[in-house]
Every structure is written in C-alpha cells, then in structure tokens.
Design a binder for these strands. Sequence first.
DNA 1: TTGTATGCGTTATCAG
DNA 2: CTGATAACGCATACAA
Lengths: 329, 329
Amino acid sequence: MSKSTIYDIAKVAGVSPSTVSRALQDHPRIGTETKARIQTLAKSMGYIPSAVAQSLITNKTWTIGIVITTVADPVVAHNIVDGIERVAYDAGYNVFLSNSRNDPQRELAVIETFQRRRVDAIITIASELGKAYSQLDRPIIMVEHQEYGNYHHTVSTDSLGGAIAAVNHLIALGHQRIGYVGAIDRPVSNTERLNGYKTALEQAQIPVLPELISLPNTDNDYERGQMGLAEILTAKPTAIFCYNDRTTMGLMKGCEQLQISIPQHLSIVGFDDIETVSYLRPALTTIRQPRVRMGQIAMQMALDLLAEKIPENCILPVELIVRQTTARI
Amino acid sequence: MSKSTIYDIAKVAGVSPSTVSRALQDHPRIGTETKARIQTLAKSMGYIPSAVAQSLITNKTWTIGIVITTVADPVVAHNIVDGIERVAYDAGYNVFLSNSRNDPQRELAVIETFQRRRVDAIITIASELGKAYSQLDRPIIMVEHQEYGNYHHTVSTDSLGGAIAAVNHLIALGHQRIGYVGAIDRPVSNTERLNGYKTALEQAQIPVLPELISLPNTDNDYERGQMGLAEILTAKPTAIFCYNDRTTMGLMKGCEQLQISIPQHLSIVGFDDIETVSYLRPALTTIRQPRVRMGQIAMQMALDLLAEKIPENCILPVELIVRQTTARI
DNA sequence: TTGTATGCGTTATCAG
DNA sequence: CTGATAACGCATACAA
C-alpha cells in the first residue's frame, strides 16, 4: 500500500505535515534527530511520495517526452532513445516515449499530450515538423531533424561528410561510375548525403550523371534498395552508395537475384552501421554513426536548456568502416 | 503559452471555474450553448489542461511504466515496446520507458520511481524479478518473465514448442548429433528451449548428450555463439540449435573462421527471427516470434486489469521459418 | 527548529 | 443548468 501521505506520517510521528515534508527532502531547517526519526518511520510505513502532487506545486515534472516519427526505422532510433534515457535517468528524469507513426497530424497530437503532461522538455527524432514548434514554451531538441530551417536546437550526424568519405573511398578504389540511392522521406539527411555524393564526384572531376541517381518512391528501406538498383543498373554503375544500411541490404538482395556479385561486379557502401551489418557476407562497408552518443548529447542539451544555458547545436562526426563490399575496380 | 487555467477562462467568459471544467469535459449537466462558447474560447486562449492537476484529483495518471531489463537485447525488446505503446496510445495512455541495465537493484529503483509517479500499470520485459512484485498495489504484467513461479500476469512465447519444432526440423533432415547453445542469463526461456530440445530428441529416441549442450558464461549473444561453437565442436555435431538469432550469428562467424560451411558441414537454427536475419547468406532458418503482438497483448492485459477484468496469461505460438542454414545431412 | 496557512489546477459534492 | 466550496498531496512563506 502506497496510500500513506505525509499527513498520516505526521499523525503517527506527532509532528506537523510540514515537518514531515522537510524531513523527507533533507531540508536545512530541521532537527537532525527528528529528521532521522521521520525518515525511518516513513520507510516503515511504506510511504512513497506522490510525484504528481509534487509536480503540481513545484511546476516541474522531471519528465522528458520523446517522439519517434519513424516506425520504419526502429533499428536506428532505438539506440538514440537508449542514449537519451540513460542520461535522463541519471539526471533524475523519466522519459515518455511515443510514436507518431510518421504522421505529422499524429505527431502534433503527441506533442500536445506532452504539453498536457507538462513535460519539462521534448526531444524529437527525425521529425519533419519544425516551425510548428517555434512557439512551444518549453525546450525542444530535434535529433536528425528533417525540415530545413534553424528554428531550434538540433543534433545530427555529419551526413555531408559521411557521404563524401563514402564516395571518396569508392573513388580511391578506382570507381568512376558511382550511383546513389536516396530516401525521399528524409528530406534533410537525404539532401545532405546526396550533396556529399555530388561534392566528392566534383572534387574528383567525375561528372554527376542523373541516371546514376535514384530516389525511389517508397518509405520501405529494403524495397528502396531493390527499386534503386533496378533503376540505376541500366546506367552501368560499378559502385553504389546508399542512403542507409537497410537500403543496402535490399539492394544486395536484388544483386543476388540478378547474379551480380559483390564486390567483384559492384561495390557498395551503406550508412548507419547498424548492428547486424558486420555479419552479412560480404560484410558491409559503411559509415558509422554514433547513435547512442547522439541521444546522450540531445538529452544533455535538454539539461542545459533546463538550466538556462544555451547549448550549441551539434553535428557529430562519422566514421568510414571498410569491410567487404567494396573493392578495386 | 499554456499558462492559462480554467480560472482565467472563467474570468473571460464570465462564468464560474466549475462551469468551465464541465464544459471542457462534456459534462452532461451543462448548457449546450455555453459549452460550445467556452470550448471555443478555451481553444482561442491556447488553453491546455494540466494532466498533473487532473491526476491529483482523479487519482489516475493514464500512464504505463515499461521497464526493459535488457540493454543487451534491444533488437527484440523494441518491437515489444512498440506493440505496447500502440495500444496504450490508442487507449489514451502514455508510456514511461526505463532501462534497468540488467541490474536487479536498478530495476527495483525504476519500479519505485514508477510508483512515485503513480503509473496505472507496469509492464516488465524479460525481468528476473517476480516475487519482489507480489505486493505491488497496481497491475503488473511480465513479458517473457525470467523467474519461475506464477505470481503474476504473464505473456510469453512458446519457447518449448518452438524448440521442439526447431529440433524436429533438424531430425527430419536426418540429423542425429544436434547441439544446443543456450543463454544462462535467461533462466526461464533458456530452460524451456533446452527442455524442448531434449523432448524432441527423446521423442525421436536420440540420446541427449551433455557434450552437445553448451551454456557459455556470457551475456553477450554474439560471444555466446562463438564460445558455444568452440565447446560443442569436439563432440562432432552435424547441427546446432541456438538460444537466439544473435547467438547464431556469432556462431556462424566462428564457423567461417574455422572453414566450416553452412549448411553443408553444419546445419543451424536460431530463435526470434529478428529483422535482418533473412538477409544473411545463407539466410537463417529460425523460429519466428510475434514480438509486436506480445507487446499488444501485454498492454491489452493491462487494460483488462485496469477494468477489473482478469485476463488469462498467454503463451504465444511461434513459427518455424525454413531458410538456408539447414540441410539434409 | 517547528507549526500554520495558503496555493498549485482540477474535479466533485453540494446547494441554489 | 450553474456557482460556491472542499479536496487531491505536497511545498513553502510566514509566524511562533
């Protein structure tokens, strides 16, 4: 039974409720012995303070609302959530987790329930909304935001740099006809990766050919890979850089069906370095993203904001992990 | 600004706060026109009710606490959480998500914060605790509980049946020397799978050999696979059934290093059917677990409990997915 | 150091 | 149908 209140304890202890309140929160102005006495009494009575009552009066809930837009990408998102939860917990916060199911309408609804619950801060992952949040009266941090504009606090990975590294790697291996399979449902990071792709090619004075770029009309990663392959193949690529690892996996499946062997006939680079990808055969060459770290940083930014400090937006560096899907032409 | 209260609205509307309260909750005893008038007014004033104040008086928070014990298994857990969140959200609940980092001490702490927050129900995933919760004064549902005893409401997958199906499949392919690599950090499901393994062998009148059973001392799935392989190999198995897919992946990596080709030299079956496993080459034969469904059912059980209905514990059926890692001997 | 009184934003129980 | 008033569980300014 957690039904006892400070009133009950006060009655039993023969003191006033405020004394109990003070004893329970290590208030300075209270006798050392009464404090100890009341604390043990409270424990023996199985007292558990009501966070909701506390929140009502202190106007602080010690909660963070996380909204994941993307059901389609739990593999990536989970690590971010994990990172957030860890630093949140250590700082005394609990996190609400909600799915917007990739529906802006629903995302708005989620945000509103978070406001109703008076969360102290909100963190969105891969949200396509942005300006909609400019009037929110609490801190909001956007991880991998997918709408251009700098209304907010953001943390992202260096998509541009990652893409450049990926394509440079392919170029260094002698490839010239390099394709890109992108994701239209991720406007910002896709654009960044596409730009990185183009940049690398231009720096190497390799022409950027439209027929080597595919932006399949789907939000399913695997499908995207298969569709992208089919589309680009006629342009005779010797290598392909994909928006993410799962896209790569779909693409590799397509290659298998067409008897295209990797990396002999075609080199492939992904993005994310999701857990299982090193167990593929051939093991995937990809760009590693510090996902847990992103979550930690996002939450740290929230903590800063809550402490009236203004954090810098940040773009985390990525790392090229060379494995077996890329080879000299 | 969500700073306005029913008091402010009352003042503007020229009515009493209680009238506002009633208007906002579609109370029967209120005039149709005043209701409408107040509702639109509230909206125009950007009023957002305080869930914490509501909770304080109604003694209901519309929150569910989820505790994941296992950092080691996010791939599996995420789907369950997803299932929970979906039905929770549709029923008007928000979920708290917390990590116990596989530490019972910490799990207890998490449960206590959930109690402080007055969550309406708690769902644990793969918890090793159980009797510790028998005195909780709110519904608790344990998904894939890892402590024997029937103190609580539980939902699990049919580990026993799944293991039998897996091993029967191998037996049908002519295998006799079949190994098992298990997980000591999952007492219940591991025991069930081990029992299923033994049962299938016994039914086929194949002797159960201790040297074909390995329970590596690690909680890292991949490592476990490698260790298990090394241990069992001396007993010359022709097939191995693993506790889960990630164990299988570690094991397959070990085989590769030892030049053991799958399924020619060794057949392998996993458990879980995690997303990426169909993209391995050879693609993994495994037991599919309805994870999202588990989450949905767990949350539905919570809803039932909250509605004073007593739900039946349930063990979800699994399905053998035959792919490429198993072959006739 | 301790007790008293008040208020946080709502809902609910009464009267009117 | 509507308006006072109490209550939810706690923290805090103020008084003692």
